[in-house]
Design a protein around this nucleic acid. Structure first.
Lengths: 215, 215
DNA sequence: CCTTATATGTAACGAACACTACAGAAATAA
DNA sequence: TTATTTCTGTAGTGTTCGTTACATATAAGG
């Protein structure tokens, strides 16, 4: 169906390799030669297929969110309770950040955290996605208020920011070499304040459950 | 007393300017021309006085720790209780990260968070300093156990990692534009789990105090 | 066949990077 | 004074950066 010479490489596979490089090295530290090496192609092919380094990064971020982030953030709206959703999100984070090989921590957090790199577009895109994650948490907490899981006087915005902050911090810990057990322990510590943060109206039997730290 | 031509600039003032640039932009993103511009000197003077970009950065980090970090971390060993020390550390963090102008968040966290920049030395140095902060927290918690403030079965290492994680995450939030009030609310949320994390043996009347969130 | 359209490899582009050779300037020591 | 030592400004070094011109290769449409 296409008119000219067909592409000689798998676009999706190449994008996946680019994602790994950006994830590991960040946007600015990832050089074109490093990217083309990992992707197995020459610069003109990269520019023909993706447009620019910046555009390639944006696609890589989308792929990251689609393939890596979903397993973490899907839990929040889908879980039966806000408490369970957030606890699962934190535990899934701990597992995702210590999965196998090198790239640990979150690409959205680590790719350009100074907000002062060569591309303001990239910084802003990542900030927007981080804010969206906070919003996901806040919406779930608002819903929990509406459903009577947590009391109406709960400061949903602050609580959402708090759990997002823990999740961001876990990226640094992961890059510093924290093990899965350590990250899981951190996740459990973060949940320890739930009753104080979101009252306790039983309803879901909030006092028990398996959220006590065991390590 | 010195033999040759005297230096034509204030070394400390120049180092302070360099610190600001590294703090705002990170190690790799801070270019030599940007540094020399901010410091008000030419490259040969910089290299004569500091040796290299990497050596300049290390001195800038020392200056940062000495002038910015002390106000935050001194509280931990000095406070009467571990609880008070950690709460003050988090509140001081919230204030420090929203002090006046641009550079927000922690230089130690934000300067090279990918651990994959051009200088492994720099990454390792920053990682070491982050680990030292965790150790400060853990030592204070150990002491609190010894003094009977918190129960002996407390997992001091995990609790220390947890509070360090919150502090790291606050750097990201600060760069994303969080206000002082938001960061203080996050700090209070982080402390909400204290009784669950470190038991409660009264001793310091842990149930009351001003740690309830107000915003 | 020829035309058109897209992809690829070679080989570069100008710009920015960290860094420095060199000569002159400004101080002390004799 | 002259010699010595250190700092400074000019003007570079070679390298790498992201990006692209250009010729060639490979497909479909006519």
């Amino acid at each position: 169906m296409p008119r000219g010479r067909p592409r000689g490489f798998d676009r999706e596979a190449a994008l996946r390799q680019a994602m790994e490089v950006f994830w590991l090295r960040g946007f600015d530290n990832a050089s074109l030669s490093e990217l083309t090496n990992a992707m197995g192609l020459r610069p003109p092919s990269l520019y023909a297929a993706f447009g620019s380094k910046e555009a390639l990064f944006k696609e890589a971020v989308e792929l990251y969110v689609r393939t890596q982030g979903d397993g973490i953030w899907n839990e929040v709206p889908e879980a039966a309770s806000a408490r369970e959703g957030i606890a699962r999100m934190l535990r899934a984070t701990a597992c995702a950040y210590t999965r196998g090989a090198e790239p640990r921590g979150c690409m959205i957090v680590l790719s350009a955290p100074q907000m002062q790199g060569t591309s303001p577009e990239v910084s802003e895109e990542l900030r927007r996605r981080r804010a969206e994650n906070v919003a996901v948490l806040e919406r779930r907490l608002d819903r929990a208020v509406a459903e009577g899981e947590i009391p109406p006087e709960t400061d949903c915005r602050s609580v959402a920011s708090y759990f997002a902050t823990v999740q961001h911090g876990m990226s640094i810990q992961a890059r510093d070499g924290a093990s899965r057990e350590e990250l899981l322990a951190i996740a459990d510590c973060a949940m320890a304040g739930w009753d104080r943060l979101a009252g306790r109206t039983s309803e879901t039997g909030a006092g028990q459950g398996e959220e006590t730290r065991s390590t």
